[in-house]
Design a protein around this nucleic acid. Structure first.
Lengths: 150, 150
DNA sequence: CCGAAATAGCAACATAGTTGCAAAAATCTC
DNA sequence: GAGATTTTTGCAACTATGTTGCTATTTCGG
């Protein structure tokens, strides 16, 4: 597990304070994990990476708090393992705004937010109304495709 | 739980035989549950409806078998409760073909397949390839919207 | 640095999912 | 349609996942 440097320590602290959250060791570390890598993390992933340091319950509660405050958002899955990823600035206390799609790589099994791909409008039959659209694309990601060519 | 009539008994038996599956009580009953209602079912739903009759393990295994044989397909969710719904005829042993979207009603909390809404093409950034697209729309369904107007 | 408020850890529990194995049921064969 | 073979079921035991109440600890405002 990468040591939290002074620079990143500052960054996570700022992020937490911006959401008026108390700055605690577990919150800093868990936020750090998200910043350290590009993909989404499940509760299990985090438990593997920080489970020896923090209690399982703390991780559950921290993730819930982050979702509530708009720091991270959930990504549905087909395997009973909801994942979480960092939100952009538009999300805040009590509300989420996401227009991007999610990509699940069948090779490295990571899940990514593809911020540059905007969710299309979906025309529903008469009588249905839309609150939110979630798009999950499964395939091979950039990194894995590049690795194959070598 | 509705009694399995002679007519529907015939139907589920035919469906099972078409997939060269042995026709057993649990398989008939679980398939029946899917035919009896329009929405998708989670493992938990099925356990509530047939759990006194069949063992939990049997339900898990039956659902897995049905997915493998292309009788039902999974629908991802944001709440760690994967749901299952009947497939159309195009699915078979070892392969699934689905072009429709899934709709989650925030009111009745049911999940439906909207067969008439085709998944759009999603243009991904360079380097990504697509195997499968899953679209989950959350909102209010036809029935609930109609009920509100009364 | 102190006190109030928020958070973390623990324990205990509830639910969800898996595996191996023996008994029972379904299918096949004649 | 009876018996042999194969498949499926149920049980037990286990692992993993998620929740709640309570107390100790930490954070933060003054």
């Amino acid at each position: 597990m990468p040591r939290v440097t002074v620079a990143t320590e500052r960054k996570v602290t700022d992020l937490l304070k911006r959401q008026t959250l108390s700055v605690t060791e577990s919150r800093k570390r868990i936020l750090q994990l998200f910043l350290d890598q590009p993909g989404a993390l499940s509760h299990g992933d985090i438990e593997k990476k920080a489970g020896e340091v923090f209690d399982r319950v703390t991780i559950y509660r921290t993730l819930q708090t982050f979702v509530d405050r708009g720091l991270i958002h959930t990504i549905p899955s087909a395997d009973n393992a909801v994942r979480y990823a960092l939100c952009k600035d538009e999300c805040g206390d009590g509300h989420h705004r996401h227009e991007h799609i999610h990509f699940v790589c069948t090779q490295c099994e990571q899940t990514f937010c593809l911020d540059e791909v905007v969710t299309p409008v979906i025309r529903l039959p008469k009588g249905y109304s839309t609150d939110q659209i979630e798009i999950l694309v499964q395939g091979k990601c950039k990194q894995c495709t590049a690795a194959m060519r070598r």
